[in-house]
Simulated scan of single mutants.
Amino acid sequence: MPMDPAPAAPSRQSLAEHLIRTRIAGDVATSRENNLDHFRALAEGNRYYWFGLELGDRWTDLSAVLELMAERCGVVASPKHRHGQDTIDPELTIDALDRMADVLHKAAENGSRVLLATGHPAGLFAVHHALADALRAAGCTLITPPDHLYADGGEIRHLASVSMLHRGGGLAHTHSPDPMREILEALERAGEPLPDLVVADHGWAGYAGGQGIDTVGFADCNDPALFVGEAEGSVLVTVPLDDNVPPHLYAPLTAYLLAAAGLDARI
């Protein structure tokens, strides 16, 4: 499945400027009210917001969740800020891309078995697709789900080696961990080894990381679970970004990530 030619990798400064200009970071579209609602839901034990991780009673303090999100994502740190604009720090985004690049580089060196998945097919699929092509070219084995797996009211399908959920005649947005659970259980039933690495978002990433699989992921500022997972060590890297801007806007970010990982961006 060909894509448009990848742009040249931007410098760190150019990428930061692009992230702010496109609102992938900086002043993002997600409101402070929405962020605080989701932080509170995670702290109150609403498993929908745990993304398949098991957090127990370790994150019941809303102030601790806000402090973590300010540190790792760049939301406004003050608890008095309750309405209006919220933020993602583009420097934290790029720092996390650099950490993710290290993981991807090692996966390529080792010829790892990699599973890529997204709950944002209208946004982040473009990033996952490019990573899939580059990892395959580097010698990695890409894992795709068996046919006829179902979860979260839909069928698990793959396109360009990226797993997604199909529901109601189209590819669906989902936070659920259930699709990843179904894939991993199907691999075990078939006697196939589990992935060495998962590259994903939402519950796809959370569930994999919670099962002890090396996992890197992308997360928006209203999705605290993967940042909590990184803080606890169940997720290796969580990249903060707006996870649903028009897909072509992620191209410079993807080019930067591929270059930092030493992967071929000529796809």
Rank of each mutant, 00 (worst) to 15 (best):
H128F: 15
L36E: 05
Y207P: 05
A151F: 15
R12N: 07
A251G: 05
V103N: 04
T254W: 09
T22G: 03
M100V: 01
T30C: 09
D152G: 07
A219N: 03
R47E: 15
A151N: 14
T215D: 02
S31T: 15
A151T: 11
A225L: 08
S163Y: 13
A41E: 01
L184P: 10
R23V: 08
V162W: 13
H128N: 09
G26L: 02
D133C: 08
T141Y: 06
N110Q: 15
R82H: 06
A251W: 15
L165P: 14
I183S: 08
V216M: 02
E71P: 04
T87H: 11
T22K: 06
T174K: 07
E71Y: 02
H105W: 09
T141I: 00
V103C: 05
L194F: 03
L66M: 02
W59M: 04
H202G: 03
A77G: 05
A186N: 12
T118Y: 08
A138F: 15
P177A: 03
L104A: 10
D95R: 11
E91W: 06
T174Y: 01
A70W: 00
R136Q: 11
P7K: 06
L187I: 07
E232M: 14
R47M: 06
V245F: 04
A117I: 00
L258Y: 13
D86L: 04
L42G: 03
E33C: 04
